[in-house]
Design a protein around this nucleic acid. Sequence first.
DNA 1: ATAACATATGAACAGTTGCTCATACAATCA
DNA 2: TGATTGTATGAGCAACTGTTCATATGTTAT
Lengths: 123, 123
Amino acid sequence: MSNKAQTVERCDCTVIHEEVVNRVMGRMPEEERLYDLAELFKVFGDSTRIKILWALFESEMCVCDIAYLLNMTQSAISHQLRVLKQTKLVKNRKEGKIVFYSLEDEHIKQIFDQGMIHISEDK
Amino acid sequence: MSNKAQTVERCDCTVIHEEVVNRVMGRMPEEERLYDLAELFKVFGDSTRIKILWALFESEMCVCDIAYLLNMTQSAISHQLRVLKQTKLVKNRKEGKIVFYSLEDEHIKQIFDQGMIHISEDK
DNA sequence: ATAACATATGAACAGTTGCTCATACAATCA
DNA sequence: TGATTGTATGAGCAACTGTTCATATGTTAT
């Protein structure tokens, strides 16, 4: 509605192709959804977390094993697992003092596979 | 090979499930590919860049129009377009003083769609 | 030429991120 | 009980990121 009025002052140049802008504006997803999408990708945008998730594609693992596998500190892994848990990408299960982490949603693999395809297409 | 020897000193705890670790280790993609994947997602991990790309799904646009559409500074958009160009996600075409940006690879949309599906599944 | 406009770019700054280190917590075992 | 082991967590920090601001570049119009 008054989207246009809101946006005028920030852009320091003239709108050149108003029809295009209006059409695209009408087809953009909600601001909040795009923000959430960016937040999801932000979580994927760290190689430690990518490695953890990829490891969990194969099997549930405890913190110690993941740390060993990735050649990293238990603390570093634990911190990252917390991030992954907060964003509902992994869940955990306790067995004595050992905590096993696994994927919350196997769907993630498809996103990674799509990403891999993109990377492979680069020359 | 000597992967195991290499990694021993960093992990400050005992490996508990050696069979699991070894199996997973054997099935992990190359370090570099996982790094590249993280780099790709890192680019997607910013809502400004997500918005720009989503806009370009619809139509090629010039810098000014994108800035207006997203209610942001021309400079901010220009900086982000540079990032997207460097990572080969967008290309541009010059027409007089106007520079039109468009997607380098329509494939990206599929990654975004997968991400959107994941977000929607959250309660 | 000079002015106007679209875009690019470098410096600077605030905010964020991922790790380390020390330590706390929790479960098991002696 | 105390010692050991697996995990979690807070503080601190160096590195990075995204924006703003000022200015440069390049094109068109007068």
